[in-house]
Design a protein around this nucleic acid. Structure first.
Lengths: 107, 107
DNA sequence: CACTTACGTAAGTATCTACTAACGTATGTC
DNA sequence: GACATACGTTAGTAGATACTTACGTAAGTG
């Protein structure tokens, strides 16, 4: 999960993800959209995204078609939402421990 | 926004955020929870989190009390959700162009 | 087969980053 | 004032990372 979070923390990879959000695109066409960077750099970003599960790859002849994996993106959004989750509050409680009694005695 | 995303991509800072999610804690007490790292390291992480707007700082005597900024975390979660948003789809459409017609219309 | 196309991979580099040890600073106590 | 406490900051370092150029490879074309 942290792998995916770190992958999407990079602006360049966010741009790539948006490009292939609902269209499948070959690597070369993705690279064309970024004039300030070489094709191998994009290839490396695609590798990071693929290993993070954020894009899927499909081969067609000599081409490799990429598309965003929305399910994985959804899990990523859920991860952030879980910061608000009650289950995590209980984990936190363990860390708080005595601190809580001092500040607000139950009653 | 990328600042916040990059800030939370670090597991150590995720742990810190969870600690101060609903309790205000002084820096030293936060540091105590991490035995494999020194206090200055935590101090530096707190700076990153503060500059990203993910925690608020309050001074009390010689101590500095930290607490998570839930509003900013909420905005961060929204940012990820916006990947699904129609507004972004339109931006992407510009990049797609004709490609869309050739493939299947997204139904 | 040679040649091209489309792409990943390797090697090298500059920059970033998470960390430690040492130092600086504000507040409180005597 | 001297001293302790709580904390940030600086300088330095090992490792990660985003990039470039050069090379490797698999699939198509003649």
């Amino acid at each position: 999960m942290d792998v995916a979070l770190r992958a999407i923390a990079e602006p360049r990879r966010q741009d790539i993800l948006r490009l292939v959000w609902s269209v499948e695109l070959p690597a070369s066409e993705i690279a064309v959209h970024f004039s300030d960077v070489t094709r191998p750099a994009i290839s490396q970003h695609l590798k990071v995204l693929r290993e993070a599960g954020l894009v899927d790859e499909r081969r067609q002849g000599t081409r490799r078609l990429y598309r965003a994996n929305r399910a994985e993106m959804s899990r990523l959004a859920s991860f952030l939402e879980e910061f608000w989750d009650d289950r995590l509050e209980r984990l936190r409680d363990a860390a708080e421990g005595e601190q809580r009694r001092k500040d607000a005695p139950h009653g």
